[in-house]
Amino acid sequence: MPKNAIVVKDVTKNFKLYYDKPSTLKERLVFWNKKKADVHTVLKEVSLDIKKGETVALIGINGSGKSTLLKLMTKIIYPTEGKITTNGKLTSLLELGAGFHPDFTGRENIYFNAAIFGLTKQEIDKRLEDIIEFSELGEFIDSPVRTYSSGMYMRLAFSVAINVDAEILLIDEILAVGDAHFQEKCFSKLEELKNSNKTIVIVSHSLQSVKKLCTRFVWIHEGKIKMDGNEKVIDEYMKVCG
């Protein structure tokens, strides 16, 4: 069994910066020679090994490249140079409620949403009760999602995402869902996943909550890893940026 869940090796990611992106054919033909765009390097030769069962927080100021790193891990975008390998079923909670259709009921949308995460019908059937119970939606589960309040919507979406049962969970700043009671519940669910030897990577600005949850902290600054280690990273980060 491989020990590393995620291996990031010498990854560089460039984004093209267009001041006015030519997206129509006319613009492409007219500005044929002006196509040169500025290149913005978000990540510079980053290498990072995340072991199975680790709970890692990526911290850093806005624009430091932590969300880009997370997106690279999920294979939504691809690195310009370098390689990323992952071992095990991976779920990314970058956005809640992906694939929800407003006119269908909550129950039907559980199927849509879970299917995007790659679950089969039997797997969803097995989790359906857990998901509905966790969302605390009760009888509303059979109403169309467009009638939901934003809190109900988020609760349903989070319940699906958290019950997908992946081996690697990538989470981007979504710990703030619902009221205090529901947040508490999400938090203890994450604790439970952590204790059942899942690999979790969280991007967050709420340092207090990640400090409680995570065991390893990676500080990313201007596209490079500035510090990597235990809670002391947070203290250092607070000194500089807090």
Partner: peptide
Amino acid sequence: YNYRELLKTNVKKEIRGKYKG
């Protein structure tokens, strides 16, 4: 094959969702 359920729900959404309402 692993994502067959997504294919199924997408087809369902396309057919039934389009004219809902």
